[in-house]
Design a protein around this nucleic acid. Structure first.
Length: 398
DNA sequence: AATTCGGGGGT
DNA sequence: ACCCCAGAATT
């Protein structure tokens, strides 16, 4: 892989390029952080770290990384792991398709690469969940491939060094950064070169740029020389997240167990267990008991008819309604705090509504995606951070 | 090219 | 509030 040199000529002399590499790498050798994945040459461990670090800060990743490597120390172990094990290791980290894709990739490696990490860009890019950035990161760090690992840090640093006006939120801008970085990257130490620029972007040339004088490469930095660092990188603003109102139903049976369900692949937080969550099309202000219970009983009837393969409903709403009652009286019920949960693209405001079954419904509704679970054993299953917030809010109520 | 995927940290 | 984070897959 090569960048297109005609796209942008940095117009630095050979001596200046050498001086830049030497300055940057000397700074890195002196000040680099001692991170777990920097004490290994195992491509598998580098891979795990790079997947976890996608859109996720170093400090957040470290404990997840340690636990993951301890539990699944090899590609083979990952390929053979249960999905529940994977999600338990990943719960709270977010972007759960990352770990699902990583297992698919591990199985690809076993099937197509004799169980060993491929050592070419083409091979790495053939793996599920490995894109241009991650392929370059693994390739350069683990195998010495001379490839720039173009992430948010490298784009910010590069944009400032050359006062680039390209919008980094646009995919086509990647070519420009690649063209420049291929001219700069140190062919002897490509992995260290990439990591040095990442450290630079993470610790000194940060978005806020609070201490620009600390930069060891400021003499190479046009935005520093011209006092324009705050203008770079150029990035289009994101659209605001849409807001949604939901109810989380905490349905308790006569054994004191709660109804929980595993989200399927068509919804958010796939594979993780939650109380039944229903979106409210209209915001309910002063609600009656019936208005709180009804959406759940309709949903329950739908689940039942799907599960029982019935083409018709046998007055389920009425039946279920009569079997449920609010847990405590309505006035205390509405005192439960609303839980706010923020995703990248939406915001959920979730109202807890505890309900109790009046008569025994043991056995009803259970299948692999829906079950009654005792409160103490819920944390044995993979749950999202939202579900953890709901459990905590409930704790203070009960 | 735009949208969809979580969750937390810093200002 | 707002932005960002060692991004990739899907639409």
């Amino acid at each position: 892989m090569q960048g297109d040199p005609s796209l942008y000529d940095i117009n630095w002399s050979t001596d200046k390029i050498q001086a830049f590499r030497q300055t940057l790498l000397a700074w890195y050798d002196e000040t680099k952080r001692d991170l777990p994945w920097r004490n290994t040459n195992d491509p598998y461990k580098i891979w795990v770290s790079e997947i976890m670090l996608q859109q996720t800060q170093v400090a957040t990743v470290i404990p997840y990384y340690e636990r993951f490597i301890e539990t699944l120390p090899t590609i083979q172990a990952l390929a053979n792991a249960e999905e529940e094990t994977l999600l338990n290791l990943w719960q709270g980290l977010g972007y759960y398709s990352r770990v699902r894709n990583m297992q698919i990739a591990a199985q690809q490696i076993v099937a197509d690469y004799a169980g060993a990490m491929p050592q070419t860009m083409k091979g790495l890019l053939s793996l599920k969940g490995i894109g241009p950035y991650t392929a370059a990161a693994i390739g350069s760090i683990a195998f010495g491939l001379v490839e720039p690992a173009i992430d948010g840090n490298l784009m910010r640093v590069t944009a400032r060094l050359f006062e680039l006006d390209a919008d980094i939120s646009q995919p086509k801008s990647r070519k420009l950064f690649a063209a420049i970085l291929y001219q700069l990257i140190d062919a002897e130490r490509p992995g260290d070169f990439n990591q040095a620029l990442m450290d630079m972007g993470a610790t000194i040339m940060t978005p806020a740029n609070l201490n620009p004088e600390a930069s060891p490469i400021k003499e190479f930095d046009r935005s520093y020389q011209n006092g324009t660092a705050h203008l770079y990188p150029v990035k289009k603003k994101k659209v605001k997240a849409t807001e949604h109102q939901l109810i989380a139903y905490v349905v308790q049976n006569l054994q004191g167990e709660w109804l929980i369900r595993k989200h399927d692949e068509q919804e958010l937080l796939t594979g993780l267990w939650h109380f039944p969550l229903l979106e409210q099309s209209v915001v309910m202000e002063a609600v009656s008991e019936e208005e709180l219970i009804e959406p759940f009983s309709d949903w329950w009837a739908e689940q039942n008819s799907l599960l029982n393969d019935y083409a018709f409903e046998t007055e389920p709403s009425i039946t279920i309604n009569q079997q449920l009652m609010p847990f405590g009286d309505l006035s205390t019920l509405t005192l439960l705090p609303k839980v706010k949960h923020v995703f990248s693209h939406r915001v959920w405001h979730v109202q807890l509504v505890p309900l109790m079954m009046k008569i025994d419904q043991a056995g009803l509704q259970e299948n692999e995606n829906m079950r009654w679970q005792s409160p103490k054993q819920i944390r044995d299953l993979p749950v999202s951070t939202l579900q953890q917030k709901l459990l905590k809010a409930l704790e203070s109520y009960l």
